[in-house]
């Protein structure tokens, strides 16, 4: 408690505290303002940031550029969708299976792709994601290309009603807090230090006697598990799944978010997700204001913005709040 109070004195602590407080109250704010859309966007932000936090374990702390992370959205989403399609709405069953499936797939592709390095790793994770994508496209019983509407939300023995937008938001928010907390603990644990050490010097970690491959594999699996959790929530939010939720562009979006927020930082994934959605939602009206009807072309501004971020803003948004722990730049 004292640590938390002390951190309020720093700019980062203050920003995070205000942000989290606002997010905690969001359903109330949305109610007062009568803005259902605000609540919907915020729910997506919270859900996406869980996946981003998961990717941050690999990408930010571990230096493993997974270009196929949206596949775990698909796995989590399809777990909910396929169960629901067969009339099974019990979340106690759906969710563990979805997360376990995501972790199992992460372990499998991790075991294969961690044999490669650099660009090969980027491309093989992309290829495995495409593989699952095309499997989903070919899944005729579950809607193939068109996807699947989910008739009922996950049910938890009547403890919580996910159809209630407020309750659903608060559940997602609580899960997001738990995820961020877990990731922060993980990053500073012995396990996390080994993974981070392997990012800056793999040979040295190996020389110290750590089985780097196994540590990375576990990091990959945990990372995938959070992706699966996020996918479960996404399917419940949209009441719809389709292969599009794991298209490679979504994987790109996730990388963008993690880098934009600040790689290897505790709150970076959350900052990044908020910035991503705020940019999308504000570029449209801004461009429309500048010249009527140009808003739908917002990506023509967003694209070059990403180029600029890649070239000049590597520390991400988190670095604007002053230096946290020392971070090292890594090379592909």
């Amino acid at each position: 408690m004292r640590k938390i109070l002390a951190s309020l004195g720093t700019p980062r602590g203050l920003v995070v505290a205000v942000l989290l407080l606002a997010m905690a109250l969001l359903p109330v704010i949305a109610q007062v303002l009568d803005q259902r859309y605000l609540l919907s966007v915020s729910t997506r932000i919270v859900i996406w940031s869980i996946a981003a936090a998961g990717l941050n374990i690999m990408l930010g702390y571990g230096g493993m550029v997974s270009f196929g992370h949206a596949v775990f959205w698909g796995i989590g989403g399809y777990a909910v969708g396929i169960f629901a399609h067969h009339g099974v709405h019990d979340g106690w069953l759906q969710w563990p299976v979805g997360i376990a499936a995501a972790m199992a797939w992460a372990t499998l592709i991790g075991a294969l792709s961690l044999r490669t390095r650099g660009v090969y790793f980027i491309m093989i994770t992309l290829a495995f994601a495409q593989l699952v994508y095309y499997v989903a496209v070919g899944l005729e019983p579950y809607g193939a290309d068109d996807g699947l509407n989910i008739a009922g939300r996950s049910q938890f023995s009547g403890l919580i009603d996910l159809r209630d937008r407020g309750q659903f938001y608060w559940l997602c928010f609580a899960l997001m807090l738990a995820t961020i907390w877990f990731c922060a603990r993980l990053a500073n644990s012995r396990f996390g230090l080994v993974v981070r050490g392997a990012k800056s010097n793999e040979t040295r970690m190996a020389a110290l006697g750590f089985p780097v491959f196994r540590y990375r594999l576990v990091a990959f699996a945990i990372s995938g598990g959070f992706g699966g959790l996020s996918g479960l929530l996404l399917a419940n939010h949209d009441a719809y799944i389709s292969p599009a939720m794991m298209s490679w562009v979504k994987s790109g979006d996730l990388i963008v978010i993690v880098v934009l927020g600040g790689m290897g930082t505790v709150f970076g994934p959350l900052f990044g997700t908020i910035a991503f959605f705020v940019l999308e939602e504000s570029l449209k009206p801004l461009m429309d204001m500048a010249s009527k009807g140009t808003g739908e072309y917002w990506q023509i501004v967003f694209g070059p913005l990403l180029v600029l971020v890649a070239l000049y803003a590597r520390g991400g948004l988190d670095s604007l709040l002053g230096r946290g722990r020392a971070r090292s730049r890594h090379r592909g």
């Binding site: 980027i122 990388i255 990403l306 890649a310």
Partner: peptide
């Protein structure tokens, strides 16, 4: 490579 992926994705 990560910078390159990000920039060319943009």
């Amino acid at each position: 490579h990560l910078d390159q992926v990000l920039a060319t994705f943009g």
